[in-house]
Design a binder for these strands. Sequence first.
DNA 1: TTGTATGCGTTATCAT
DNA 2: ATGATAACGCATACAA
Lengths: 345, 345
Amino acid sequence: MDKPATIKDVAELARVHAATASRALNPQTRDKVSPRTAARIVEAARALGYSPNSAARSLRTRTSSVVGVVIPDLRNPVFPPIVRGVEDALREAGYLALLGNTDGDAERERDLLATMRGQQLAGFILATSKRDGVPLGPDVSVVLVNRRTDAGDVASVVADSGAGVRALVNLLVERGHSRIGHLAGPQDTSTGVERYRAFLDGLSAHGLTPSGVEFCDAFSEQAGYDATRRLLAGGVSVTAIVAGNDMIALGCYGALAELGLRCPEDVSVTGFNDMPFVDKQRPALTTVRIPHYDIGYEAARLLLERIADPSSPPKRLVLPVELIERNSVARVALSDPPNARTGQN
Amino acid sequence: MDKPATIKDVAELARVHAATASRALNPQTRDKVSPRTAARIVEAARALGYSPNSAARSLRTRTSSVVGVVIPDLRNPVFPPIVRGVEDALREAGYLALLGNTDGDAERERDLLATMRGQQLAGFILATSKRDGVPLGPDVSVVLVNRRTDAGDVASVVADSGAGVRALVNLLVERGHSRIGHLAGPQDTSTGVERYRAFLDGLSAHGLTPSGVEFCDAFSEQAGYDATRRLLAGGVSVTAIVAGNDMIALGCYGALAELGLRCPEDVSVTGFNDMPFVDKQRPALTTVRIPHYDIGYEAARLLLERIADPSSPPKRLVLPVELIERNSVARVALSDPPNARTGQN
DNA sequence: TTGTATGCGTTATCAT
DNA sequence: ATGATAACGCATACAA
């Protein structure tokens, strides 16, 4: 009894034919067999520790209970909760997650997708950040995370970045800021451009214009540091900086400290993502919390829906974000000469 | 031409039999076919965009190029780099990673392993933390991470926790500390007991005994906070605390601050793991860096070795750790009455 | 309701 | 060196 039991073994023990056992064991077709024999078969399966051979099943049904999950890099702290959410939703449905990292490299992504396609996967969850098209045919189910194609024919789940940035800008304006700069994320990522646009929109809603924008070539601390140095070297004077994400904000902290500028007394800083431990920084970072786990969970739910009914229209989910006020935003000091237009709202 | 090409299509185009095509396309058996026809077959495969159906292959060969990776929770910051290392090593060998979280629940682990076993996986990497036996037969290849069975018949990769803790204790003693307490991790985890034992050993190597030990019921900030309160509520006076890991150390920071104790001036604190951002805490945490990525990478290498040659003896790898000195350890103040035995080394 | 027959795509064995 | 054949385990169309 070394080898795992097959459905034939189960059938034999239950004294039925393999086809009957198959029907009894499959929830889909269970009602096609009498309750009495079904119970006997289930019992036999349990006794033998039967677990179906998924390779055989996949070969036969041309699909599997495995979903490909492709992300840039698991070490980026936004992805673990997303992947965890995906995995939880998948497991509830009896599905498994096949994980792959691309490091944002288009070729790696193609290779990985090609390899995975050979695995008869039921679908894909793509969280890669570049904005180019989806390199998969229309026959496979796909859900995009943190990213949307310009064409609306692919399901996606994103956070409402725009609302988050506008909330940040509103907070700043409420606190009396009018000279506000932006450390924008890479403009070849959808989050980077969305937040940049929302920053512009949020400002203009208050009749303001940006006091300086610098673009980061990565969502990294180093890039944030460099961009801050550039922003301030240009002689622009700001009382607040909206960073493209938390990492960039942390880099900004470092540059500010080096420049002898205090945060938040001299310049307020905001982040984006609410990564672990930004609440423990000095000062604790005011930022926007993104429901990463929920994004992953809902993405998997959406994918499961599409797998169950491929003809269903691809939904595009936008999840709300939450403003997290901490200590990196201060009311602009009275000694700081207020902008002439300050009284207007 | 909707459906993906099969090996039969390739064979037809190359005007050979499917069996020949199979031989030509498989690196293992390529030399059993003439170079001329082999080239023709490879060309045909490329022309048709042929990619083998892994379900059929798995069904036939009773194995696959997929490895199961089981961890407690991806959101625990030690796991992402481990999983990334695993994935990189696997991909270099053309393998894929099937990921599952157990939340440390034994039943969940059993279920997951049962589900995965049905997938004809080539092997498993288990990073679950409980110390009980491995719930898999001897026929499947397994490598343990951060954990070893008491029996030495299973391959494993661990960090040298003992050396790390001893380095921490040595540092503390060098700095004049002799009243040292320990916030031990859960004693049903191998890391928890290993570090506890190493703490005792390290101390006794200097002729010291612990000035207090409290056990945490989890490797969490809250548990660290609670344990610190208990330790100090007992009236014990320590000048240094060795925490079971970084999270516990962070909880310790919190409790100390609440008690009006300054770190490191009043009490020094050490962590373990060197999680992201502990270098940005106040004070920056002195800790031990574990080569998480390498652990994952080497674990996958070991597994691949065992898959290639199941009769090879199960290796047990111990990777070196690195002491990271930052600002949470101070020389004990002169005003603090030194222990009578201080002069002994 | 249950049994029979067939094929999914691949590779291993045997024959040529 | 290549071809023919069978079998891996399962699910389904069809027959009973």
